[in-house]
Structures are given as structure tokens and as C-alpha cells.
Amino acid sequence: MASDWYLSCNYEFHAITTPKTTDVVGVDLGVKTLATLSDGKVFESVKSYRKFEAKLSRLQYHYRNKIVGSANWKKAQLTENS
């Protein structure tokens, strides 16, 4: 009866170089512009803060001094959604 097992493996590998198929582009995320690519393409930011600034101000006014989960907090949420 055999008490030990042995395994022997062998493989052969031939490296094949392939030509470059994709171009690499670097991305710079910024404050003034959303993103600038290394090839010169610029994506403008959506300026969502300016778009929703009045709504944010109104929400902050409604939610001031409210405890999250309280009845007054829920009532403030209901008045905003309607």
C-alpha cells in the first residue's frame, strides 16, 4: 500500500508579442472643467450646484433644527415633495 503521492507537471510557453491596438489617454479631473483628456479634448462641468442652489437653500431652511427621523423632520420632507 502506497502512503505518499507525487505529481510532476511540465509546460512549455512561447511568448508572442502583439502590436498595440488601443490608444492610451490620460484624464485630468478638475474644478473649472469636469475632465480634460491628454489629447486636448475638454468636457465642461454641468454646474449642478448653480442649477440647484435655490432648492438647496430652501431645503436647508426647512430642515434647520430638525432631528433626523422626528415627526417635524418627516413633515418637512412631505412639504418638499408635494
Rank of each mutant, 00 (worst) to 15 (best):
S38W: 05
A71W: 09
L7C: 14
N72M: 10
K66I: 02
S45I: 00
T22E: 13
A15M: 00
V27T: 05
S82F: 09
E53K: 07
S48L: 15
Q60S: 08
S70V: 12
S38Q: 08
A35D: 00
Q77P: 01
M1E: 15
G69R: 03
V31K: 09
K55R: 11
E12F: 06
K51G: 00
Y49Q: 06
K41P: 00
Y49A: 07
Y61L: 11
D28C: 04
S3T: 14
N81Q: 15
H62G: 00
R50V: 00
L29G: 08
D23F: 06
V31P: 01
L7W: 12
C9D: 06
T36L: 04
V46H: 14
S82A: 13
A15S: 00
S57C: 02
Y63N: 04
V68S: 10
E12D: 07
K55S: 06
T33R: 09
L78Y: 08
W5V: 15
V31S: 11
T21P: 01
A35E: 01
V46R: 15
A71P: 10
D23M: 06
S45Y: 01
G30Q: 02
H14A: 08
I67K: 14
V24S: 03
E80P: 01
K47S: 09
L37A: 05
D28G: 05
